[in-house]
């Protein structure tokens, strides 16, 4: 399997009236063909901004991508998405890369029928007649589980429930058989039973399309069920990236350990006290010269206050940005 997306040293800043927000401070990761990558982080960790930067959807001003590359390899050809011209980029967005956002209401146009919106995406990216687009749209609606697709073709977004709207957004995202689907908190606004429906739908669709999925969320539970590999973000940097079992069973970053400890376990018998992470995440207006987790970390030592830890490889497909080796119980030799 080849790498379909390689992000290298991405830096994004927002120039606001309050100062410079250091949203992304050097993020590197890759995505394999057909793989599902979960990006986990709290608000302000940069998980959404990372993907918005890759798609060049950062509102500018105030946002600006300062550095980095995002190499997208499709059908043997590689392009840097960050330098691609805008016309080509529009073809990529919604074509080779499908997108699903948290809030389906703001994604859908309220005065167009959902059928029109889906077929518009199809005709924009593929060379098909209107009639073919319509046929394909109805097929897509069936595929995402909307009952009576012929009838629903003519419905407007407000006539749908939240879960159904999200299905429509998914239909638009997969309309052009994308190689990557980026889902930014697609289930956060939904109830658990509806979330389960959408997660299930996603799993089956990505398998059927053999598309790679980037699933951005704050919910470590959802990621455990859907992702093959997980990337944990903190303070605009990658804290840890590992295969899903590795991450949950052998977390290497004190932040990951803290996050997992902060979650109640549904399978636990006795009520244990939750492990909380003290303090608050970094203020991104202040550029840091040291680890952004240092003042919340139980293991921080001098070096953590002096330099920013790089992404250190600690195992096959396991990288962590931390100077402290939790397993050894002392500083790492790097």
């Amino acid at each position: 399997m080849g790498k379909i997306l390689e992000v290298k040293n991405l830096v994004t800043k927002f120039y606001t009236s309050d100062g410079v927000v250091n949203a992304i401070n050097g993020v590197s990761f890759d995505l394999e063909e057909g793989e599902t990558l979960g990006i986990v982080g709290e608000s302000g960790s940069g998980k959404s901004v990372t993907m918005m930067s890759v798609l060049r959807l950062i509102p500018s001003p105030p946002g600006k991508i300062e550095e980095g590359e995002a190499i997208f390899t499709s059908f043997g050809a590689s392009h840097d998405l960050l330098t691609l011209d805008e016309t080509a980029m529009r073809d990529v967005r919604g074509g080779q890369i499908g997108m699903v956002f948290q809030d389906p209401i703001s994604t859908l146009n309220p005065i167009m029928t959902i059928g029109e919106q889906i077929s518009e995406t199809i005709t924009r990216h593929l060379r098909v007649s209107n009639d073919e687009a319509r046929q394909q749209t109805i097929k897509l609606l069936t595929q995402v589980g909307i009952p009576d697709p012929e009838l629903r073709y003519k419905s407007y977004p407000f006539q749908f429930s939240g879960g159904m709207r999200q299905r429509v957004v998914i239909a638009i995202a997969i309309a052009c058989s994308p190689q990557i689907i980026i889902a930014d908190e697609p289930t956060t606004a939904l109830d658990v039973t509806i979330q389960a429906q959408i997660v299930d739908l996603f799993k089956r669709l990505s398998e059927a399309l053999n598309a790679a999925v980037i699933w951005i969320t704050h919910d470590l539970g959802v990621v455990a069920g859907i992702a093959e590999r997980v990337l944990v973000m903190y303070g605009g940097r990658i804290a840890e990236i590992a295969l899903v079992d590795d991450l949950y069973e052998h977390p290497q970053h004190p932040y990951t350990v803290g996050l997992l400890g902060a979650l109640p376990k549904l399978d636990e018998e006795e009520t244990k006290r939750l492990v909380s992470i003290r303090g608050a995440p970094p203020d991104l207006l202040i550029p840091l010269k040291h680890c952004p987790f240092s003042w919340r970390c139980d293991y921080a030592f001098e070096r953590c206050w002096e330099e920013i830890p790089p992404q250190i490889k600690v195992g096959p497909r396991h990288e962590v940005s931390c100077f402290y080796d939790l397993e050894k119980g002392g500083p790492r030799d790097v």
């Binding site: 909380s276 003290r278 303090g279 608050a280 970094p282 203020d283 207006l285 202040i286 003042w295 919340r296």
Partner: peptide, 13 residues
């Protein structure tokens, strides 16, 4: 309960 102040909070405040 955990004390919330950190050097960075102090700076930003």
């Amino acid at each position: 309960a955990v004390k919330e102040m950190t050097p960075h909070d102090a700076d930003s405040l």
